[in-house]
Design a protein around this nucleic acid. Structure first.
Lengths: 206, 206, 206, 206
DNA sequence: GATGAATGAGTTTTCATTCAT
DNA sequence: AATGAATGAAAACTCATTCAT
């Protein structure tokens, strides 16, 4: 179903077919922007990563900023799509909260991890206009978090203010990008649980 | 006492007298690097912020990278100095943990907040050599955290692995730089408590 | 008759049928070259003005220079054709001189005004080869002026050297392109008379 | 006296000392802009004409547009200065009108001829902001013409509307730049007289 | 210590033109 | 005839750094 939505978004021109020239460009751009940072990635780097000359980039995107923006849009869309489908399968609030955390962790490690890392780390290099355009998407994404945290508070799963908790969790989760190695000692499951434990009070011992 | 240590470090040439020309330069550099980012701050920006021409910067520091490094060294030293003195006044583990959190939050908001924010956000733009040189300092700093978290675990204040918990708290705390407004609804004290609550289990109700 | 000549020139391939694809291209090119200048008009501008993509232009013309040249050839041919037919109706030298002025003014305001303005203002951007090819046409055109000015001098209508006077009139007339607004206070007739008065001495009052 | 005014303007930063680095740059820029046109003159051309590298240009002027503007400002100021001093020596209206014509012709041939030719021919390539800034200067210049033409009409030296006549003369005079060769058959004096004859009615033969 | 002119390698971007489909 | 992706050379501009004064 998610696939279907994505396909439809591609047809609408919102998303880009990953096998097209533009798609390959965005994949490489996401990788390079994450690795070296937006400002340190030259358009020559981008072009040579997809095997064309730098001038040809501008056939696909108006300028470097438009490429950054496109990477971010892709990242957010795919992350949200995944999140929606994972949430649909969870029916307890704690399960849904855990799914949110797992998804956000995954967003940084999965196929679109590069793009999502770029959303987080290179945000300030996006032009004002670009930020404006994407902000609505980001807010929609945050809304999914807030709703579930609000529900969790009603159920006394959490005690902190949902807004504040979300911000703290966001920092904790996105920072994992800088240190977590999924092939290391700590498993992906354990990390998810550790973060979940930050948020929720343990079931009170009777 | 802290004052005394800092004075001694200035005399040793590790730190810089904030009233000297170099000191004013570092203060402005920290501010600009935080505000615009290292790469987007030109040496002309730096120079004009202290009222000289760009060529004259290089009488004070060998190159732009050296300025970044100096800003970071200042930031870490001052943060550590403060942390040491605050810890000295706390005698319970929970108190010491709270002091660590408060200090780290404060590090981003206080006098040396700009410099510390630069340490966090512009780290990857520091040359390899510069990173090497500062790493020891950062590790010393992290050691203070780990010792207290280790103690907290012994006392069953926390359940998570100290290393992992530190990383998660680090992410949560440093991210506050991007959203916390000390003049807003949420007070500085409340934020400190909220973060402390992430870390520790509440005292079990008898 | 003029129509017949033009039709014949189209059949010979000298001129272009204005309803053909090439014709529409030249019309738009003339408009854009006049409006934005040759160098500031991109082939993309040209292509999109006629609803094709830039690559397709080169099926019609070898290169951008060839388009400029074609615009100029059209402009000069149509202007000359009109001038010949107007002169044929005037039988006094003063009438013929006035017709020349009116025609040249009209050349900049009528249907082929864009093309003629391009001849005047973008001349230096035409390649050497292109200039060479068109120069004969321009000289033929100038010859029509010189003959009539020569006659006017014989009749003591004018006192100045025909060559010099022609140059001065040319400057005065072509410059009107930059300031004359045919919908403004000054009528087209009045302008024509004002220019005629530059050239000729008033009939001496007896 | 004119010298004194110019010196004072240099001190005010309005004009540029022709022996300074900036001054040499403007002289060369005026020459190249006239010769090849603004758009066809690259910053490399400009730089190599003054013996520096292209990047160094931007130490003196913010961008290419600023160089164009500076050339024009110089051109207009010097032309006006000369015109004022020449007018001061003429006391009949016809003499003053002749002086205006001579000055304008001279403006295109004398020391600042390149700059003035640039004002005329490259005007449309100046940015909107630049045009705005210079327009006041140009209007002041035109005012000098209009006043004298108005006086000439009162004295029945001319019959045409001053505004229209000025425009026609402007076209005729500036176009001389494209054909007049001061070393050719036609002398500079004769050309001035020929243009004056365009404007004024000959003294009526008794 | 400061100046300011210059460097030079680098950046993003533009654009006429080509060509396989 | 048209497309559209790509080319490649050249454009304007940036900026850390150097250095004679």
């Amino acid at each position: 179903m998610t696939q279907g939505v994505e396909k439809s978004l591609i047809e609408q021109g919102v998303l880009v077919d990953p096998d097209s020239a533009r798609g390959r460009l965005l994949t490489q751009a996401a990788r390079l922007f994450r690795q070296k940072g937006y400002q340190s990635t030259t358009v020559r780097d981008l072009a040579s990563a997809v095997g064309i000359l730098s001038g040809s980039l501008f056939h696909h995107y108006k300028n470097k900023d438009a490429i950054l923006k496109a990477v971010m849009v892709e990242g957010i869309h795919h992350t949200m799509a995944r999140m929606r489908s994972e949430l649909a399968e969870e029916h307890t609030t704690q399960g849904r909260l855990r799914a949110l955390i797992a998804c956000e962790l995954d967003a940084l490690n999965g196929d679109w991890g590069d793009a999502m890392a770029v959303v987080i780390n290179e945000w300030r290099f996006l032009s004002d206009g670009g930020q404006q355009d994407i902000l609505a998407l980001r807010e929609e994404y945050e809304q999914m978090w807030l709703e579930i945290l609000l529900q969790a508070r009603k159920e006394r799963l959490i005690t902190a203010s949902p807004k504040v908790l979300r911000k703290l969790l966001y920092g904790a989760i996105t920072w994992t990008d800088k240190w977590f190695d999924s092939t290391g000692e700590l498993s992906y499951q354990e990390l998810t649980d550790a973060i979940l434990q930050l948020a929720i009070k343990p079931a009170s011992d009777p």
